Structures are given as C-alpha cells and as structure tokens.
Amino acid sequence: MSEPEGRAEGRLDYGSDPSQYGELSLPEGDPRGVVVVIHGGFWKAAYDASLGRPLAAALVARGWAAWNLEYRRVGAGGGAGGGAPATFDDVAAGIDHLAGLGLDLTTVVALGHSAGGHLAAWAATRGRDGWPQRVPVTAVVSQAGVLDLRSADADGLGDGAVRALLGHAATAADAPYDPIQRVPAGVPVWCVHGRDDDVVPPSQSAAYVQAARAAGGEAELVEVDGDHFVVIDPDSPAWTRIVGILDTLG
C-alpha cells in the first residue's frame, strides 16, 4: 500500500477483532474532506463492508477521502460478535481511528445506508453517553436509514433485526442507541429515502426529520424515485442528489 504525504491507505485495523477495520481510499491531491461510509444489512453478520466499496470509489473520484468502515455485527459466521453495545463501540472507535491517519478532519461526513444510516446518525451524538469522540462528525447523510428503533421494532423490520441488535424489544430506555430519541443531532442531517422503499419505509426518515426540527435541529428529508437500494447505486439519479449534498460540505 502507498503512503502519500505520510498517510496510510488501504485496509487499516482499529482493533483486534477481524471485523474491526476500515478501508481508507484517497484521491489525488488534498481531499475535500472525509466521508465515513457505513454499510447496511440490518446489523447482520451476513452483510459486510463490500457493500460500501462502490460508494467509496465514487467518492474518491470526486475528491473525497473515503473511510469504508467495518464493525462487529449480529448473527453467526464471519463478522459476528456485535449487537449493543459492541457494534456501537466499534463505530465510535472506527471513526476515532481517523485521528491518527494524517488527514484534515475539518469535514467528516457520516454516510450510511439502512442500518448504516442508523449508525451514521448515532455517531454524530455518540459523545453524549460516554463514548469517546476524538473525531466529531460534522454532517450526516442517512440513506434509507433505520432512524426510529421503536417504530422499526414494532413493524418487524428486517425480521426482528432491532431486537437482535438490542437483545430485547426497543423501548424509551434504549435512547442511547436510538437516533430519533437523540434529536437534535447538533449537526446537519440529510435523510435521503426512496419513495418506493419496501424494506425500510420512508416514514422512518420523515419521522426523524420532523422530530429533529421540532427539537430545533437542522434536518432535511430528500425524497427520491426508487427503492431501498437506489440510494447506493452510484449510477442513479438518487446518488447524484447525494453528491449534490456533499458538494455543499466540502
């Protein structure tokens, strides 16, 4: 792996577990900022960081540094060992690992899809409940995010994925893990959601934005044509909308 200007690139471990790593990709020249790519898959071990690689490549092509973050997840097989709080510990540690990589961290955007959108929104507020926050998130782009754990649990999203993550039915006591219970985030949040999403309903994003604004936060609902996955297709108009949001940040 090359080390331009003293900065590491490629797969970098932030812990000893096989799932505690990120993939750092750098553009030519100085990056516009750093985008932390957090993949989805309902926090399940069956899904991994390969989902984020096309987005990371597209971001690097537009001048961003991309940190494609892996974390411990729920279920059997490779990537297991997650759930609350381990998954959250990993996301916090993975973002903070950026502090030692020689990057300009003035702009750090958390970009996450589905369960990754949940973790991206959570990451912006992680310092409130004792998680370390050496590297603050300065903006969030949630792509079809699971932003209301109680509603998602009640609706049975992901075949009980919320209960598997938490280890029990979601309640008000799970506020440390639940983005909608943590509004306002304190940073701008864009919730990009496909109108025809039948995996994570658009109401998840709409409810979050409404709650965030009611709490005095800066949040915007961006509705796009398409399903749950259109927002992670770099060739889609939905991705063009996301790129447009990022262009306002760096």
Rank of each mutant, 00 (worst) to 15 (best):
D13Q: 13
G15C: 07
S19W: 03
S19Y: 00
Y21S: 12
G22W: 09
L24N: 03
L24G: 06
L24W: 09
E28D: 15
E28G: 15
E28I: 14
D30H: 14
D30A: 15
P31M: 12
R32I: 06
V37D: 13
I38W: 00
H39D: 12
G41K: 04
W43K: 07
W43S: 05
A45S: 15
A45F: 07
A45K: 05
A45R: 00
Y47M: 15
Y47Q: 14
Y47P: 05
Y47V: 14
D48V: 00
A49V: 15
S50Y: 08
S50K: 10
L51D: 00
R53E: 00
R53N: 06
L55S: 04
L55T: 01
A56Y: 02
L59M: 01
L59W: 11
A61E: 13
A65I: 10
A66T: 04
N68V: 06
N68D: 08
L69N: 03
E70Y: 05
Y71Q: 15
Y71I: 01
V74P: 06
V74T: 02
G77P: 12
G79M: 09
G79E: 00
A80R: 04
G81R: 11
G83S: 14
A86H: 04
F88K: 03
F88D: 04
D89A: 13
D90Y: 00
D90I: 07
V91N: 05
A92R: 11
A93P: 15
A93Y: 06
G94I: 01
G94C: 11
G102N: 01
L103E: 14
D104P: 02
L105M: 01
L105I: 06
T107N: 09
V109A: 02
V109N: 07
H113P: 08
H113M: 05
S114C: 04
A115D: 01
G116N: 04
G117Q: 00
A120T: 13
A121V: 13
A121M: 09
R126M: 13
